[in-house]
């Protein structure tokens, strides 16, 4: 079956959505992420949507669902790279994803997750070598 790949980055999971997903595929992603979080005890999920040309209410709801499920499993979710036109459209549609954290790019998303994990007391290392500091 067709699936969106989920990458493991230390304590985090990274999903890069590059295709126009049909609804079934979106639901499968939601299920896959849930099981991977528990399997690896992941502390954070990064969803990179910078290649997505639209986010409708269905995908919006999926993003919100992933964030709340992850929350229950003690992981933070960051949606990364939403395009301006997509953001403008979502706001007009009436969807502002209040429970979802966002970042401009993956690097900033990782920083956000690191800060969240650090403030919750745990320590971790991420094999992220391209940060200047």
């Amino acid at each position: 079956m067709e699936r969106i790949p989920i990458l493991r980055m230390g304590q985090f999971l990274l999903v890069t959505i590059q295709v126009d997903m049909h609804d079934r595929l979106a639901l499968t992603l939601q299920e896959d992420l849930t099981s991977r979080i528990t399997e690896h005890g992941s502390r954070g999920v990064l969803i990179d949507i910078s290649s997505l040309e639209i986010v409708d209410s269905f995908i919006g709801r999926m993003l919100a669902n992933i964030a709340s499920i992850a929350r229950v499993l003690d992981a933070d979710t960051v949606v990364v790279g939403m395009q301006p036109a997509v953001a403008i459209t979502l706001v007009e549609l009436g969807l502002s994803l209040p429970g979802v954290r966002t970042a401009l790019n993956v690097e900033k998303g990782v920083a956000l997750l690191n800060a969240a994990v650090a403030s919750s007391g745990a320590m971790l290392e991420v094999d992220d070598a391209d940060g200047e500091d």
Binding site: E53, I54, V55, D56, F58, A85, I88, T89, L93
Partner: peptide, 26 residues
């Protein structure tokens, strides 16, 4: 999307129209 591009619609309007189409199609 193809039809919107063909009339030369701007990116924001095109994104709005494609999103609207997705909602009603569903």
């Amino acid at each position: 999307r193809g039809w919107c591009l063909a009339v030369g619609m701007g990116l924001v309007d095109l994104t709005k129209m494609v999103t609207a189409a997705s909602e009603i199609a569903r």
